[in-house]
Design a protein around this nucleic acid. Structure first.
Length: 405
RNA sequence: GUGGGUAUAGCUCAGUUGGUUAGAGCGCCAGAUUGUGGCUCUGGAGGUCGUGGGUUCGAGACCCAUUACCCACCCCA
């Protein structure tokens, strides 16, 4: 037997329905916010992710599905969605339209070669949005509001965490500041933290080790080291969230793992799904378009981890719908097929049972496929060109000429 | 990459200190006055016990290896 590859899952039956419900709900809300659908290739040049997501991230460093194609190109299955959309944005020369706003949403599979666990697959799906050209922090607020609208619509409980990562003006000095502080207590930190001082010092701040946390209580916080512009934006964001009655918590340790983030960073967290609790994350990336050779353009986006919310989603109960057609005698099949096609052309859902069988068998069959109407041709109906129809919901039945069915 | 757990019917799982024909529930199929669904009752089909070695008179149970899945670290959505 051939099984799906490790960390890859089939979306079938209820899972498939849940997936569709999530993407359709989110897409509807995103378009209400003025976002347009975009679909970019799943395969991209490796360079794209190295320059956007960043060499220092684990995603690029060790989790990419990477290979050389037959043309000798160094390519990767996309590990996230933003890079491709930004590439498309620049390729379409939209960055030349300075002052214009462009807003996109997308959804689809992403690939990371990680050890699978609850809420973490190698092929997983994200729904994301990217907004280009709008530098106002009101857009940051609007994306967070959109996310809460989406989760509200899906019936998912969440908490919101926000932070500001600063800009080119305030982040580098803060980083130096932090590193020198960490160097001072280096010997007492755990092994992981010592390593992170070089690779990603801000990460040290959210070490799970209790001893480290005690030592870190004195460490400088990014939120106290923002420049005037960043600080003003961050304050305004908080005001906007409060006015909109969106509960949030400032978490100075919230760090995005991707190098391209600047300014506002946010995360939506659920406490009902195990260790992989981040159900959505995003933030600003005002320099990313430049990194990828575009004209400087502010940007901000988020992504939802669809698998992580799948089991939390409350889907509406589906009701009986459409038709089940069957016959009790072999001669009836032509009439059944003709009727089925007429109804299908008419936009109705129809399931046909080809084998003749007793009425009871057909009723059971209709029940099983969730049909509302069960229509059967038997001996009597065959003789006078009629068909027996039962409404399974109202328990009403009638015999009518087949032309009228 | 590291650690722990699990692997028996389509699904969820029982299976006593190793001992005859490996069980249940659900699902599936067929019946319960010959043309009336969901409920009930009866019967039936379905398993080389993940795979490969080993210990033993004898292994689904014990040992080793291997693979897969699950959970956690890590990382992140």
């Amino acid at each position: 037997m051939i099984n799906a590859l490790r960390g890859m899952k089939d979306l079938i039956f209820e899972d498939a329905e849940r997936y569709r419900y999530v993407t359709e709900t989110a897409a509807k809300i995103a378009s209400n916010y003025g976002f347009e659908y975009i679909e970019t290739p799943i395969l991209e040049e490796t360079r794209l992710f190295r320059r956007s997501v960043g060499e220092s991230s684990d995603i690029v460093g060790k989790e990419m599905y990477r290979f050389t194609d037959k043309g000798g190109n160094d390519v990767c299955l996309r590990p996230e969605g933003t890079a491709g959309v930004v590439r498309a944005f620049i390729q379409a020369k939209l960055d030349r339209q300075q002052g214009q706003k462009y807003r996109f949403f997308y959804f689809g599979p992403m690939f990371r070669y990680e050890r699978p666990q609850k809420g973490r697959l190698r092929q997983f799906h994200q729904f994301g949005v990217e907004s280009f050209g709008e530098k106002s922090v009101a857009e940051d607020f609007t994306l967070i509001q959109m996310l809460s609208d989406i989760f509200d619509a899906l019936g998912i409980r969440y908490s919101v965490q926000i932070n500001s990562l600063g800009c080119d003006a305030c982040r580098p000095p803060y980083r130096e500041n932090l590193v020198s502080h960490l160097e001072g207590i280096r010997e007492e930190l755990c092994e992981d933290c010592r390593r992170r001082i070089e690779s990603n010092p801000i990460r040290v701040l959210d070490c799970k080790n209790e001893h480290c946390q005690e030592l870190l209580s004195e460490a400088p916080r990014i939120t106290h080291n923002l420049c005037d512009d960043c600080d003003r934006d961050f304050q305004q964001l908080q005001d906007l969230l409060s006015n909109a009655r969106i509960p949030y918590r400032v978490d100075p340790n919230l760090v995005r793992g991707l190098d391209y983030y600047t300014g506002t960073a946010f995360e939506f967290v659920s406490d009902e799904i195990g260790a992989q609790s981040a159900i959505a994350g995003g933030g600003r990336y005002d320099r990313l378009v430049e990194y990828l050779d575009g004209r400087p353009t502010p940007g901000i986006g988020f992504a939802i981890g669809i698998e992580r919310i799948m089991e939390l989603v409350r889907i509406p109960e589906k009701e009986r719908s459409g038709w089940y057609l069957g016959t009790m005698i072999p001669e009836g099949i032509d009439s059944i097929l003709k009727l089925a096609h007429k109804k299908r052309k008419n936009g109705e859902k129809v399931v046909v049972e080809y084998s003749p069988k007793g009425l009871k068998g057909h009723l059971k069959g209709a029940d099983k496929v969730g049909a509302r109407y069960c229509a059967v041709i038997g001996e009597d109906e065959w003789k006078n060109g009629s068909i027996w129809v039962k409404d399974l919901l109202r328990k009403e039945e009638k015999v009518i000429p087949i032309q009228e069915a």
